[in-house]
C-alpha cells in the first residue's frame, strides 16, 4: 500500500550505447522525426580507461528523452562476445528464448490510432519497417528494432484505464507477493490467492 506522496514526473531520459551513431540519428531524427535536443562531447577520464564519448539525446515527447552514448574507438565486443541474439547492449545465445530477449524494451506513447499509423507509415518507408502491429488487452502497439537491435515500441491506449483496473492490479501484486513468498509459485496459485483476496476485500 503506497501512503507516500508521489512526486516524480515521468522519464527524464533512458540511455543506451550505440556503435552506429549514423544509423541511430537516421532512425530517431530523420525517420521518426524526434528532434535532437541535447548533447555532451566529453573527453575520457577516470580510472577505467574511459573512452572519449558523445552523449546525445532525442526528444520523445512530454520533454522526456532517449539518449545514446557513442564511445570513440570502441566496438560491440566491449560488452562481450557477439551473440546470436540481442542488441548493442546485451547479447544472447541462440538458445535463449525470444520472449526473454524481447522482455526489456522501451515503449513510447501516442494519443491516437491516427498518430500510431503515422509512425507506422514513417517506419515502413524506412530501412526499419514495422515488424508487428498488435492489439493487446487494451492497447495497440507497433514494434520494430532500431539500428542497435533495441526493440522499439510505439503504443496507444484503445480506452482509458479504469479505476477498477488499478484496484485489480493492486490485488494482483498482493497475491503475487504472497505466492512468491511460498514454495513453487505458479499461475494457478496466484489465481487461487487472488480469489481469496477478492472475497476478503471486495464488498459484495
Amino acid at each position: 500500500m503506497t501512503e507516500q506522496d508521489h512526486r516524480v514526473r515521468g522519464v527524464d531520459h533512458v540511455a543506451f550505447p550505440t556503435f552506429d551513431p549514423a544509423a541511430t540519428v537516421r532512425f530517431y531524427r530523420d525517420v521518426l522525426g524526434f528532434p535532437v535536443v541535447h548533447s555532451i562531447c566529453a573527453a575520457g577520464w577516470g580510472p577505467e580507461n574511459h573512452p572519449d564519448f558523445i552523449h546525445f539525446f532525442f526528444d520523445i515527447g512530454n520533454d522526456d528523452r532517449i539518449a545514446f552514448f557513442y564511445y570513440f574507438g570502441s566496438s560491440p565486443e566491449v560488452g562481450g562476445p557477439v551473440g546470436e541474439k540481442g542488441d548493442a547492449y546485451a547479447r544472447f545465445g541462440a538458445d535463449v528464448p525470444e520472449y526473454f530477449v524481447r522482455s526489456r524494451h522501451l515503449a513510447i506513447h501516442v494519443d491516437s490510432e491516427h498518430d500510431l499509423l503515422e509512425y507506422r507509415r514513417r517506419l515502413d518507408a524506412s530501412s526499419w519497417p514495422v515488424e508487428m502491429q498488435i492489439q493487446h488487452e487494451t492497447i495497440e502497439s507497433i514494434y520494430t528494432h532500431d539500428p542497435n537491435g533495441y526493440m522499439f515500441e510505439i503504443t496507444r491506449a484503445m480506452r482509458p484505464v479504469t479505476p477498477q483496473e488499478d484496484d485489480d492490479a493492486n490485488l494482483t501484486i498482493d497475491a503475487l507477493l504472497d505466492v512468491v513468498a511460498g514454495p513453487e509459485p505458479t499461475f494457478g496459485k496466484l489465481l487461487a490467492r487472488k480469489a481469496e483476496l477478492i472475497v476478503e476485500r471486495v464488498p459484495v
Binding site: Q135, H136, E137, A192, V199
Partner: peptide, 12 residues
Amino acid sequence: AVWYSCIAGVGR
C-alpha cells in the same frame, strides 16, 4: 490477449 488474461481469480 484478452482471452488469456480475462481471469481475475479461481476459488480454491
